[in-house]
């Protein structure tokens, strides 16, 4: 039981180490989402905005800012409600009160990931899974060896 507890403690430590290591991995992350909001039209006739580009969609799919009409009668989806999506950056208005934002954000992080490989020609001086495996293997062998040595052998 005691040995089991010790082994568990080792596992907890090593898993914390792995988690912390992956936390610092600054690899490439990507998020893509689609924001779509369909709102009721505000038929404000006479206010024509020609050529106004669509405004940016909202982040995290919370609420869509009203889109701007590109031509014709002004209309804005005032009461748009976002349905899904993460972050739409480039908003495009598609006419009458319907705003559809399709955003794809790709953020390339730093140079090295958790495994220490950043691109083609880079190595991390960190450890990685192989180091962890070596450590665990050696620790297990050591534990077994200690257990054998401490065992009382009958004559």
């Amino acid at each position: 039981m005691k040995r089991l507890l010790q082994l568990l403690a080792v596992l907890i430590l090593t898993s914390a180490w792995v988690m912390a290591q992956s936390g610092t991995g600054t690899g490439a992350g990507s998020s893509s989402g689609t924001n779509s909001s369909t709102g009721s039209m505000n038929g404000q006739t006479g206010n024509s905005n020609t050529g106004a580009p669509g405004t940016q969609g909202s982040n995290n799919g919370t609420s869509a800012t009203p889109g701007q009409s590109t031509s014709g009668a002004s209309s804005a989806g005032e009461t748009g409600s976002s349905t899904s999506g993460n972050s739409g950056t480039a908003g495009t208005s598609t006419g009458a009160g319907t705003t559809t934002d399709t955003g794809t954000t790709n953020s390339a992080g730093g140079n090295a990931n958790a495994n220490g490989n950043a691109g083609a020609n880079s190595n991390s001086k960190g450890g990685g899974e192989i180091a962890l495996g070596t450590f665990l293997g050696l620790a297990a062998l050591w534990e077994v060896s200690r257990r054998k040595k401490s065992a009382v052998r009958p004559f």
């Binding site: 912390a20 290591q21 610092t24 140079n111 090295a112 220490g116 950043a118 020609n121 880079s122 190595n123 991390s124 001086k125 960190g126 450890g127």
Partner: peptide, 11 residues
């Protein structure tokens, strides 16, 4: 030798 080595926290 043309390869980058980066020192991170574990290093």
């Amino acid at each position: 030798k043309g390869v980058l080595y980066r020192y991170e926290n574990p290093c």
